[in-house]
Design a protein around this nucleic acid. Sequence first.
DNA 1: TCTGTTCTACGAAGACCCTCGTTGACATCC
DNA 2: GGATGTCAACGAGGGTCTTCGTAGAACAGA
Lengths: 135, 135
Amino acid sequence: MPSESAESRREPNRFTHRELDIMSVLWRRGSGTVAEVRDVLGEDVGYTTVLKMLQILEGKNAVRHEKEGRAHRYYPLVESADAGGSALKRVMNKIFHGSAELLLATLVENREFSDEEIERMRSILDRAQEKEDER
Amino acid sequence: MPSESAESRREPNRFTHRELDIMSVLWRRGSGTVAEVRDVLGEDVGYTTVLKMLQILEGKNAVRHEKEGRAHRYYPLVESADAGGSALKRVMNKIFHGSAELLLATLVENREFSDEEIERMRSILDRAQEKEDER
DNA sequence: TCTGTTCTACGAAGACCCTCGTTGACATCC
DNA sequence: GGATGTCAACGAGGGTCTTCGTAGAACAGA
């Protein structure tokens, strides 16, 4: 098995902090204009900054835009599940020695979950196991 | 609820990519000299680069070193569980809308787990629930 | 002693990230 | 028409991240 540590300079679905801030808004809302995104982010981020970031993201094919009146409306092209999968894999490998169990243990340790949440998480595992058993 | 997007410029336990590469090695091995860390990372990372990163990490109190012969042996000061907790929280909030269930679902979707692994993950949830029920 | 090796230390170069000032287009209101 | 407001576009500035060249100390072997 190759060492995996030599990262290719540009992985897919990997976002910088600000990029992630902005993608996060688009994922939540489905789409957004510059002004809308900026409203969510708060006034401490400049308008032109948000615009620039969206243009950068467009250059990376992470979003696309359509004209809407005089403004542009931006839509995410990268799915949050894909970005999340990559991010989780990275965290799991780099920090949790590749162990999903260690990751899960840390997750439940750092937050209190209600019975209902835990129940739903359990059923997620059930479904995964069923799928496994079918083979 | 405050908007949460205005990140403080330096969160604790937050590492850059290269920093994380190096911390990852120290966490796995428990400690390492520059040469040892570099061996794990592969020859495409320069010796002085690794040294520099370790010095930077030391400046951030993420590692410390002891003399070992003529060389330095570095030890992690930040625990992987702490770094992992921060990273998971970030991923959960920015990408999974704060939902641990969505996170778990993505995790099990992206990798096949054996029955044993799933069983152990289930018991992690059991333990969390017991703790919850005690109150 | 000379030479090669292995180490730390320092600093500078280059890439990347983020921010914002400025410009010009367009629209609206008076 | 002139003032005002909203918009995209561009580019430059300053910061951070990463890399590496170079220097010098310590040591080993011939």
